[in-house]
Simulated scan of single mutants.
Amino acid sequence: MKNYQKPNPEVWTGRSSEKELYLHEKINCIDLTKDPLETVKDKSFAVLGYVCDEGVKRNQGRIGAVEGPQAIRKMMASLSNHFSSDVQLLDVGNMTCIDQDLEETQQDTSDSIALLLQHAIFPIVLGGGHDLAYAHYNGIKKQFPNKTIGIINLDAHFDLRKVEGKGNSGTPFFQIAQENKDFNYLCLGIQKESNNRELFEVATNYKVDYLLNTEFTSQNKQKVAQTVANFINTVDLVYLTIDIDGFSSAYAPGVSAPSPFGFSIDIAMETIQQICKSNKLISADLVELNPTYDIDNCTARLAARIAYYMMTWL
């Protein structure tokens, strides 16, 4: 894997203790090309970085998401460790994009995700652009070829643009739909203003389930919960992808495409909890964090807390 970059332990720093009181003291850095992967008694999680915003660039977005994985790691490092000794937390490094070869980066990412799943390790992949989703789905499919995989996307955008030339951060779910007869996709937080009529037509043609940002609210949480439950009941496994730019820019200014009318933290967290408790969630990612535009690391802190929250409920 020429795109692979081993983890940097220096990212994981913070207060010191003798009792592993902080995540930076608990995490183990593993070189996927050398170190053996082992699962532990309870649960194993692996942080994998997708250090790539070539897809964002191709999609004419503002670049900077390439710095997202390290920014999230830094904010995770100082979080308090409330996990038991039976929970294993790994940093397995990054996938980088060399010579603008997005497709090769996606292939290496897919292989790495499949390897983690093969060892019963839950991947938490940090982006990077949302083109990660194409790689992520294929990694799950490689390991579970006979399972029905459902995609739940918390996002302002469908990312169902038709591929014109090469794939990008706006095309991953269209690519998945094109290559898989069994396409199961639920998108929460869709904004009409950010998706043109053709994208809604593509969503209809592929029978995509979705809730608009005006529906994905705490005031409407019963309908949200029922929509999520109905979708989960139709699939064997769930892949959760969270586009940070789906949140209101009041919470997440440091993203590729800020959303002043995005969803709130409370409904997102309730939904994530529900998905985690379904016992079908197999893998997850966080994408489109752009530290260049962040304010006091608040967006990176949000992403770090979401990752922590998922591990807690899993």
Score class of each variant (00 low, 15 high):
Pro36Ile: 11
Lys43Val: 04
Ser44Thr: 15
Ser44Leu: 08
Ser44Lys: 13
Ser44Arg: 07
Ala46Met: 00
Leu48Tyr: 04
Tyr50Val: 00
Tyr50Arg: 00
Tyr50Lys: 00
Tyr50Glu: 00
Val51Leu: 05
Asp53Ile: 01
Glu54Thr: 14
Glu54Gln: 14
Glu54Phe: 06
Gly55Thr: 03
Lys57Ser: 09
Lys57Ile: 11
Lys57Met: 07
Arg58Pro: 09
Arg58Phe: 02
Arg58Ile: 11
Gly61Lys: 07
Gly64Ser: 11
Ala65Ile: 06
Ala65Arg: 04
Ala65Leu: 03
Ala65Cys: 13
Ala65Asp: 05
Val66Pro: 01
Val66Tyr: 14
Val66Ala: 13
Val66Ser: 09
Glu67Leu: 15
Glu67Ser: 13
Gly68Leu: 05
Gly68Pro: 08
Pro69Phe: 03
Pro69Gln: 12
Gln70Ile: 06
Ala71Arg: 09
Arg73Gly: 01
Arg73Tyr: 03
Met75Val: 02
Ala77Trp: 06
Ala77Gln: 12
Ser78Ile: 14
Ser80Trp: 06
Ser80Phe: 10
Ser80Glu: 14
Asn81Ser: 12
His82Trp: 09
His82Arg: 12
His82Ile: 10
Phe83Arg: 04
Ser84Met: 14
Ser84Arg: 08
Asp86Gly: 15
Leu89Ile: 15
Leu89Met: 15
Leu89Thr: 08
Leu90Gly: 13
Leu90Trp: 13
Asp91Ser: 02
Asp91Phe: 05
Asn94Met: 10
Asn94Glu: 14
Thr96Asp: 01
Thr96Val: 14
Asp99Val: 03
Asp99Ala: 15
Leu102Val: 05
Glu103Asp: 14
Glu104Ile: 08
Glu104Phe: 10
Gln107Ala: 10
Asp108Thr: 04
Asp108Val: 02
Ser110Asp: 10
Ser110Ile: 03
Ser110Pro: 06
Ser112Pro: 00
Ile113Gly: 02
Ala114Gly: 14
Leu115Gly: 00
Leu117Glu: 08
Gln118Lys: 14
Gln118Ser: 11
Gln118Arg: 08
His119Tyr: 05
His119Asp: 02
His119Ala: 10
Ala120Ser: 12
Ala120Leu: 02
Ile121Asp: 03
Phe122Pro: 07
Pro123Phe: 05
Pro123Ser: 05
Ile124Tyr: 00
Val125Trp: 02
Val125Asp: 00
Val125Pro: 01
Leu126Lys: 11
Leu126Val: 15
Leu126Gln: 02
Gly127Arg: 03
Gly127Met: 09
Gly127Asp: 06
Gly128Met: 04
Gly129Thr: 04
His130Glu: 09
